[in-house]
Amino acid sequence: MNKYLSGAAVAAISFAFVSEAAATEWNVSVWGKRRAFTEHVEKLAELVSEKTNGEFIMNVSYGGLSKNRENLDGISIGAFEMAQFCAGYHPDKNRVITVLELPFLGVENLEQEVAVSAAVYAHPAATEEMAQWNAKLLMTSPMPQYNIVGTGEPRDELAEFEGMRVRATGGLGEAFRAVGGVPTSVTATEAYQAMEGGVVDTVAFAQHAHLSFGTINQADWWTANLNPGTVNCPVVVNIDAYDSLSDSEREALDSSVSESIDHYLANYGELLKKWDSVLEEKGVQKVEIDAAVIEEFRAKAADPAKDAWIADMEAQGLPGQELYDLVVKTLADAKSGS
C-alpha cells in the first residue's frame, strides 16, 4: 500500500469535503404530525431542495426540537432556523399580529386570510416586533374560521355559552368570555386530553385540527356556521440564518413562498370538500346556529374586543388603529377583487 496519496487523490478527497461543507442545512420546528396545517412547510422544503440541487436542505421536525409554545424562543436563540407558532400562545411576544385574531373580522375564505396576514406581516411594526426575537415573518398558515365541537346536547343558544369551558386562544377566547364562556388556552396537542378529562366542555379548532388532534372523535356535535374568528400562525425564520444564506439560496427560499401557499390552499380545499362525509362517518351532528344568535354574539364580542385591542396597543406605543384599519381595507380590497 502506498504510504502517500497522489496529488489527484488528495484533491478529490478535499473537493468531497468542501462540497459536503457547502450544503446548507436548516432545522424546522413544528408540532403534532404532518397535516394540512404544515403542508406549506413541507412544500417549501421540497421546492428549496429542488431549486438548489439538494444544496439547501430543510429538516422538518414534529415536536423533536421544541414545545410549540417555545418555538419563538428557540428562534430567538438560534436553536433552529425556522419554526411555526400561533400568536395566541404568547400574545405578549407578538402583539402586532394579534390584530388578525380579533373576533368577527369578516374573513370569508383562506385566500382572504392570506391577504390580510401578508399585509400585517409587511407592516413595519410587525417587522420591528419580530426582530426583537431575531425572527423574520416568512409566511402565514391560513386557517378557516374556527368552530366548536362538544358532547351532549348542542349548545346553539347564547345562554348555553354561560359557564362553558372552551379551549380557545387569543381573540377567540376573549370572544367567548364576552358571552359568559370560560376560555382556556391549552395547546393543540393538549386539547384531546383536556376534552377527555373534562377540563373543557368544548374545543374551538379549524377542521384539520379537529381531525389531527382527535377532538372530532369525542364529539357529538360541531357548529357549522358560528365562525367567530380564527387564529394566526406564522412561519418565521431566524434573521441571522436568513442573512447567512447565499444569494441563490435566499432566492430559492423567497421565490418558493407563494407556490408553497398555493399548494397549502389547494390541499386544504380538498379537506373542506370532504368535511361533511367526515362528520357523517364519525356520527357527529352538524349544527347550524340561528342567524339571530350569531348576530347577538357578534354584538357582544366584536366591537368591544376591537376597541379594547386598539386602546391596549396604542397605550403600548403600537399603531393599533392603523393596523386594524389596514386589515379592514385589505379585506375589502380582497373581497372586491382589487
Rank of each mutant, 00 (worst) to 15 (best):
D303Y: 08
I294F: 13
V235T: 06
A305W: 09
Q316K: 13
E249D: 12
E251G: 12
A241Y: 04
E288L: 05
K286W: 11
N232H: 15
P234G: 11
A241L: 11
A241M: 08
H263A: 04
I261D: 00
I261N: 00
D312S: 14
I294Q: 03
E251L: 15
A305P: 10
L271P: 04
I289S: 05
I289P: 03
G283R: 08
N238I: 05
G269P: 07
K282W: 12
D290V: 10
L272C: 12
K273H: 12
E296W: 09
A315M: 08
E270N: 13
H263F: 03
V287Y: 01
D247V: 12
E314G: 07
S255N: 14
E314T: 03
D240W: 06
K306P: 02
A252F: 03
L265M: 13
W275I: 08
E249S: 05
A308W: 03
A305L: 14
V237A: 08
S244Q: 14
V293S: 14
A241F: 01
D247A: 14
S255Q: 10
I239H: 05
A315F: 05
A311D: 04
L253I: 08
W275T: 04
N267P: 10
N238S: 07
I289Q: 01
P319F: 01
A292Q: 10
V257S: 07
A305T: 09
G317N: 02
A315V: 00
A315R: 03
V235Q: 04
W309P: 07
N267T: 13
K306N: 13
A266Y: 15
S277P: 09
R250H: 10
F297T: 02
E249K: 06
A308D: 00
Q316E: 14
Q285K: 13
S256H: 00
A302D: 06
D290K: 15
I289L: 03
A311N: 10
A301M: 02
V231M: 10
L272I: 12
D262Y: 08
S248V: 13
N238G: 08
L253C: 01
E280C: 05
